[in-house]
Design a protein around this nucleic acid. Structure first.
Lengths: 190, 190, 190, 190
DNA sequence: AATGAATGAGTCTTCATTCAT
DNA sequence: CATGAATGAAGACTCATTCAT
């Protein structure tokens, strides 16, 4: 990658970005099929025709990009949580607390941005594959932190899966109850 | 007339029932907004006008009924799992295995019938309330089994929530991987 | 007509009557096509199936009956207005004032019950014929009063038509302005 | 480019215009609720999606536009009638004759395009306001001609209202009788 | 690179009517 | 006589997408 590319890559392409952010937010809230392109375009303040300029394959393309973007954000949260942590379990605790805050900042009802966007979409095999890929990225990130704290390869894997399951399940219960404390209580179950 | 017939004869409205079953199945697979009424009616082999005869408020009404029906089914699975179990943890294990089978019998991709139906629907407050109510029913059922096995009130509550979270999160990971063994492995995490 | 029939005819058949009254009122307000049978039945507090019991030909039948009923009411207003009048023009004045009151009692927006019911209905020839017939009845009634006050046959006819036109046109202007005084001012134009 | 072209070129949107014309014609004949959008679209030879492109608020929007368009046409007829007239009453006579012709050219059954479109529509306050506005425009146009012929302000107003009432009432009687001569006889009543 | 007009298959819902009881 | 369950055609409207510019 040349430095030109880097500069270019840093250059904000606001329309495309706004499209992705809006998509991520709306899909997370109402699901893939629950969001019309009109709503989306209006929310992103993007002109009608521009969607197909940036995403030639339309809505599915945008959904993939939105899920990826949301996943990147989550990976960053994971990284930050474990960054200064003295142990895996304290990193995990920080992560759950950060997610609790996130839960409160959104509508206390939004779903996991990946599953809401990709699980109920057109029963496209690509959607499933991509969701699996993104989840795998999350699991790998967490596993790496466990390894870093001295866990065995097998144990690290288990720990990452366990945390994944608790967070996904906890989020679901938090939604049903509109109560972010469910998230804060998760570390006790590890 | 046998007592079985009597029970069955109470309300044999097959059209309404077919509607509910089809709705539960399709919503679980593709989400509330992912299912068109045309698909639904065709799947249930019900004539177009029937829906609004049985569910005057249309799709939302039907979704509520479908979620309730699905929830009832799940409660039955819970009851069966704990029925002959010698301990809470063995009942929980049986439940996870039964759910793994269920996962394989469906598309290995379907979501939780309650959240898929009610969480991404029209951001109706009633939907949220009903989802909460159904989940509370599940939690209460499991808590009662824990109490039956001698757990304290507080402990029983915790156990039911823990199991709920594991099952919901595990199901999510199972979907992503199309692998029901995730469900079978859950009891180890209790 | 036997006395038995008379007794029988006086016996209130409430469902059918309520149906007719509701139809007259709703059609007058929203027009033939603007009123659904569901609204109608609900307004008349009549059970679903009873419409076709009393009016085998359904909505058109009911519309005809409603227009006739409304017309009968108007004829009665005409008769009352001219009953004690010392001259044709004073009778006409009373009539206009009575209609102004009627206008205020309804929504200040309702149309002529006959035209609202029959003019925009299905382009049924019968509807047109019936409307013509009802209007002819009104004109004849007014003409008779003119004759009674000594007008020539030709003059009486003209007077009735003139009054008809003023009332119909005045009503229209009154609707546009939501102002019943338009009606009260009509006699000055005779 | 001639000035004519310029005027025409300002907004040559033929689809939108066809939609408006068809709407005006069909609403006039069968009333707002009597016209389905399918009929309308077919009559205008416009594709289904076009309507909501040109009239984002759908049928009510289109009805407003159609009533305005029809009203503009009627104002033109008024202007033409009074244009070369030597007196108000001769202008009025010409107008009545022109309307009689119009009556014969349409179905001898059509209603006033404004009231048929706006009076029985959804009991929207906007509809009422717009109808009032359009009628006020007609009355003002006629009043101006009366003023031009030397009538006092008050007299001109009265004359315009009187003519309005006769035309509206006369049209109604003409419809009932399918006889345009009612219109031709109106000037005698001024 | 970017856009808004245009499109027809699709959405959910209501309609007037029939029918068995 | 009276009724409410049942029905499919039609209702208004939105959808994701294409296209010419």
């Amino acid at each position: 990658m040349s430095s030109y590319d880097m500069i270019d890559a840093e250059k904000p392409r606001p329309t495309k970005d706004r499209l992705i952010r809006s998509a991520a937010e709306l899909f997370r809230t109402r699901g893939y099929h629950g969001v019309g392109l009109n709503d989306l375009l209006a929310h992103a303040k993007a002109p009608k025709g521009s969607l197909y300029h940036h995403f030639p394959n339309g809505k599915p393309d945008l959904a993939m990009a939105a899920a990826t973007w949301a996943s990147d954000g989550l990976l960053r949260v994971v990284a930050e949580s474990f960054a200064g942590a003295p142990s895996f379990s304290e990193g995990a605790t920080t992560l759950c607390h950060k997610l609790a805050k996130l839960f409160d900042m959104t509508n206390q009802w939004d779903g996991c941005p990946i599953s809401a966007t990709l699980f109920v979409g057109p029963e496209n095999a690509e959607f499933r594959k991509h969701a699996d890929h993104l989840y795998a990225g999350w699991l790998a990130e967490v596993r790496d932190h466990a390894l870093r704290f001295g866990a065995s390869e097998e144990d690290a894997l288990k720990k990452s899966e366990h945390l994944f399951i608790l967070i996904q399940g906890g989020w679901q219960l938090a939604r049903a109850r509109s109560d972010s404390n469910v998230m804060r209580d998760l570390p006790n179950k590890l």
